[in-house]
């Protein structure tokens, strides 16, 4: 459930979950107070202030809950953790140049963290990994001229062919900047 929530479509439904109640309230208030009866409201000031308190508290609580729940899904945290301890990491070094990728390896295993360390040589590029079912798993932004590579640690669970795409506009052949990654079943794990 939370896995879905912090995917692309999860983001979509959370956004709709904010829009729809707002749109409902918006329509109700405007319709009621312009078409049905535009006379002055009779709600006492104190009741309005109470309502204000409930509304702002609810928004605040929802915002905090969503953000706390998201912590587990922040690639930054998995990446930082893998840097200190944890199981051995498979390394994939990536160098992006208009409009291809140079990769130290194009095959990794399931169940073992993979560290992608990516650099851009000429201009800004991206490195997005798509699951075989079409979902985007993560994307990275690379800029030339920085000392550290952009890094994500990701542990794959499904074997298959994963598409890689550049998601930072990098000139007239940007849409052709793609590659593939093969994920195979780990022979050590099972």
């Amino acid at each position: 459930m939370l896995d879905f929530l912090f995917s692309g479509w999860g983001a979509f439904w959370v956004t709709m979950g904010m829009l729809l109640p707002f749109a409902g309230m918006f329509w109700y208030v405007i319709h009621r107070k312009s078409v049905v009866d535009s006379g002055p409201g009779t709600t006492p000031r104190a009741a309005m202030s109470r309502l204000e308190g409930y509304w702002l508290t609810a928004v605040f609580v929802i915002f905090v809950t969503i953000n706390l729940a998201s912590l587990k899904f922040m690639p930054i945290i998995a990446t930082a953790r893998a840097a200190t301890a944890g199981p051995p990491v498979q390394e994939v070094a990536v160098t992006a140049t208009s409009w291809t990728y140079e990769m130290s390896s194009r095959q990794v295993e399931t169940g073992k963290p993979v560290r992608f360390s990516a650099r851009a040589k000429d201009t800004q590029h991206g490195f997005a990994v798509y699951h075989p079912d079409g979902r985007m798993l993560f994307t990275m932004l690379m800029m030339p001229g920085v000392s550290k590579p952009t890094t994500v640690v990701h542990t794959f669970s499904d074997p298959g062919t994963y598409k890689i795409r550049c998601l930072e506009y990098c000139g007239i052949a940007h849409h052709g900047m793609k590659d593939e990654l093969t994920v195979v079943k780990s022979n050590a794990a099972t």
Binding site: A11, S70, P75, T139
Partner: peptide, 25 residues
């Protein structure tokens, strides 16, 4: 109202977890 919808989409993509699956799309 459209701006409020936009704001919702904006804060969602500003969350670190969602940024990784929405940035550049």
């Amino acid at each position: 109202a459209l701006y409020i919808l936009d704001g919702a989409s904006a804060i969602v993509t500003s969350n670190v977890a969602w940024a990784y699956v929405l940035h550049g799309t």
